[in-house]
Computed example of a mutant assay.
Amino acid sequence: MIYPIVMYGDAVLRQKAGDIAPGTDLKQLIEDMYETMHAASGIGLAAPQIGKSIRLFVVDGTVLEDEPGMADFKKAFINPQMLEEWGEPWDYEEGCLSIPNIREKVARKARLRIRYFDEQWNQKEEEYDGMQARIIQHEYDHIEGKMFVDYLPALKKRLLKGKLTDISKGKVDTEYRIAAPLKK
C-alpha cells in the first residue's frame, strides 16, 4: 500500500516519535514504507512522514550504487538510538519527501554509531560513515521531530518561508500523493 507523504507543517513531523513494543509485527508496514518511498523516488522514509509517530525508518541507497557502500544499503531501523556521531562535518545538498522541490546544503558529522532492531527484532549496533551515515542522520532526525531545514541559517529560513507555507497548504507539484496539513 502506498501512503500519502505528510507535508511540512504537520504536527506529526515535529513530535518525538514513540517506541514500538518489542515483537510487534511490522512486516506489512515496512513493506508499505518501502513501496511508498520508491513510488516517491526517495532513499529514506521515516514513519512520521506517513503520519505514524513511531520510531521506525527505512533506507534504500541502492540507487546510489556509484557511491561507496551503497550497492546493498537497504534496511529498516526499529527503535533506533543514536549512540555517537563524530568526524569532520561535511556539506551536502539534502532534500526531503516532506519538503518537495527544496534542496539545501546541510553539514553533518561524517560518522555515527547506532543501536537498533532489524525486521526480525534482532538488536544491532553498527557504525556508518559517508553517505550511509548522512541518510541515517536525516531519517533519525525525523523520529526526533527535526527536519533538515532546522539546520539552515536564519536568513535562509526566512527566504524559504513562503515556499514552506505553500507546501503546508498543498500548493506544490509532486509525482506522489501528499497529505498537506493546511490544505483546504
Rank of each mutant, 00 (worst) to 15 (best):
A180Y: 09
T24R: 15
F73W: 12
R103E: 13
Y128L: 08
D32S: 14
L182R: 13
G130T: 03
M70I: 12
G18D: 11
I143K: 13
H38T: 13
S168D: 03
P100K: 15
G145V: 10
M70N: 12
I102R: 13
A76R: 14
E67W: 11
L13W: 02
M33A: 10
Y92V: 13
E144A: 06
T62W: 07
K75V: 04
I5K: 12
N122R: 15
T24P: 04
P48K: 00
N79V: 02
G145M: 10
I114H: 08
I20D: 11
P89G: 00
M82N: 05
F117C: 07
Y8M: 03
L56D: 13
P89D: 02
Y116Q: 14
Y3R: 12
W90Q: 09
A46V: 02
Y176N: 06
E67G: 02
P22W: 04
S53G: 09
N79H: 07
K161D: 08
V12E: 01
E127A: 11
A39Y: 09
A17K: 08
K171E: 05
Q120P: 03
N101Q: 15
I5V: 14
A107D: 03
V149Y: 01
K105T: 07
T174S: 10
L152W: 04
L164F: 06
R158Y: 08
L159T: 02
L97P: 01
F148Y: 14
I102T: 13
T174F: 15
K161W: 06
R115G: 09
L160Q: 04
L152P: 08
V172T: 08
L164D: 07
I114F: 07
T165L: 12
I143D: 04
N79F: 05
I143P: 06
P181S: 04
V59W: 07
K163H: 14
W86T: 11
K183L: 15
K105V: 05
V6A: 00
W121Y: 03
I5C: 08
I102L: 14
G44N: 08
P68R: 09
Q15R: 08
Q137Y: 00
I178G: 10
W86K: 12
Q123N: 01
G69E: 14
A133W: 01
L182N: 12
K169A: 08
G51Y: 00
G145Q: 11
P68M: 07
M1N: 10
A39Q: 10
M70L: 14
D129V: 03
A17N: 05
L64N: 14
A76E: 13
S53P: 14
D173Q: 15
Q123V: 13
G61S: 13
L155N: 03
K146A: 07
L112F: 09
K105D: 12
T36W: 09
G95K: 13
K163Y: 08
S168A: 08
M1Y: 05
V6N: 01
A46F: 00
R103A: 14
Q28S: 11
V58I: 12
P89Q: 06
A47N: 07
